[in-house]
Simulated assay, not measured.
Amino acid sequence: MGVLVTSAHSAKSLVVTRSLGRNGIDVTTSDYTKLAPTYYSKYSKDHFVYPHPIENSESFINCILKNVKKNNYEALIPVNSEETYLIAKYKHKFTPYLKVPLHDYDSIMRANDKGELLKIAEDIDIPIPKTYNLNNMSEIKQVAEKLNYPAVIKLKNTKSSIGLSYVHSKEEFISKYVETVSNFHLSASNLPIVQEYIPGDGYGVSALFNCGDPRAIFTHKRLREYPSSGGPSTCRISTEHKEMEKIAVKILKYLNWHGVAMVEFKLDSRTNKPYVIEINPRFWGSVNQAVAAGVDFPYLLYQMAVDGDVKPVFNYKMGVKTRFLINDFRSLSDILKNEPNKIPTLMSFSHFFGKNLYYDTLSFDDPIPGMLFYPFEIKKLWHRLK
């Protein structure tokens, strides 16, 4: 008996694998690459390589299914976006053999669609930035006149900061919007949304739900991110924000959520009002932040899947920091390019050790995969540069 975990090349897959392994669960890891760092975790009892989920989705599903039929797993836990969405779509193929703690495919894709967030906000009255959802390209000039600048262009369905851009004038907006549509080959039904820019700090409210009822809630504040203009967090701290948590629960109850999700917020520095930015209907990049502070989402998800329910966890340790170090160095470089007063940033960054400081990949009791992330990330950077 054990658990099958996907996306072994990612830091969050390593976090999930360590979480389950430390709780005595046998973990098999899997990925589309032969040299994924999580394969080398002492908590990965076995691993295998599957076809690329985007390039060959049918073969990916068939490979996972073949492995599931051959082994006596208790649960299948996908980690990254592509694998999560595909497994949710074909969940009916897997559920005769093991537990798959995911919401239904349509609900997951609705939560992932930033254009749908506008409709959800209208239905249940939650605060989001002023949003424009274009129906066709002829509306660009009309929207350009209405916008308050700076504004943000976002792809409806994407991960991290892919396709995200900031514009500061009508001319820049029109040019960048057309460029985005062209670069990503977007159809009229999938045009980018446009939002007002909200200045302030970013927060995340993470949650585990069981058929519409909350089982765990956790809030963190972003301290640094990469790119520094808006991307995945690289350093964070555990905190609480009752208003944000109430809004996140309201959204996920409305969606009758099942499984894990994270609702992203911006706290407007002008008004101190929180705005919902997006919903991540899967494991999020900063999942180690919650685990380090005492909300062990991967293990809680496993327990809920296998036992049918889990004891709620709503309390955790405040002031715990976590870092994804290699991306935190990238964030530092990004910030220093634009930061006039570099000393406070350097002082904050240079605190590498502390009682309440943890790292996403580096671990004394499981050192090998943490070290492998550095050549792995350098290899990815080299391919991007080429």
Rank of each mutant, 00 (worst) to 15 (best):
D307H: 15
A292R: 12
G308P: 15
R236H: 07
W257L: 14
A292K: 14
W284M: 03
P232I: 11
E264W: 04
I247C: 04
W284A: 00
R270M: 07
N288L: 01
S228D: 00
A248G: 10
S286M: 07
I277K: 11
V287M: 06
Y226H: 15
A293M: 12
G231A: 14
E225P: 09
G231W: 03
A292Q: 14
F265L: 07
R270D: 07
L252H: 13
E240W: 08
A248E: 00
T271C: 06
K266P: 03
T271E: 05
K246C: 03
E264P: 11
F297R: 05
V295C: 09
N272R: 03
I247T: 09
V295K: 07
A290P: 04
V291P: 06
M304N: 14
I277Y: 00
R224Y: 01
R236G: 00
S286L: 02
I247V: 09
E240T: 14
A261H: 04
H258N: 15
P227E: 02
G230S: 01
C235D: 14
D268N: 14
R282W: 02
S229N: 13
Y275A: 02
K242N: 08
A261D: 03
G230W: 01
M304F: 03
M304I: 10
R282V: 05
W257G: 13
L300I: 06
F283V: 03
E225Q: 14
Y226N: 15
N288E: 15
V295G: 12
V276T: 03
T234P: 06
S286P: 04
E225S: 07
D296I: 08
W284G: 00
Y275I: 01
T239F: 04
W284E: 06
L255Y: 02
V306Q: 13
Y226W: 15
F283H: 11
L267Y: 01
E245V: 08
Q289W: 03
A292L: 11
K253G: 07
V306L: 14
K273G: 01
V306R: 15
Y299T: 08
S286T: 08
T234M: 01
H241F: 01
K250W: 01
L301R: 10
P227V: 09
P298M: 09
P227R: 10
A261W: 01
L301A: 13
V295P: 11
F265R: 07
A293C: 13
R222H: 13
L255E: 15
M262R: 05
A305C: 10
K246Q: 10
K242P: 01
I237A: 00
G308H: 15
K246D: 07
V249W: 08
D307L: 14
S238V: 09
E278I: 04
G230F: 04
L252K: 12
V287L: 05
R270P: 03
G308C: 13
V263E: 07
K266M: 13
S286C: 05
P281R: 12
M244T: 06
L255R: 14
A261P: 10
N280E: 03
S228E: 00
T239H: 12
R224H: 13
Y254L: 08
A292E: 15
N280Q: 00
S233Q: 09
Y254I: 11
E243R: 10
M244P: 06
L267F: 04
M304P: 06
K246S: 11
I277E: 10
N272L: 03
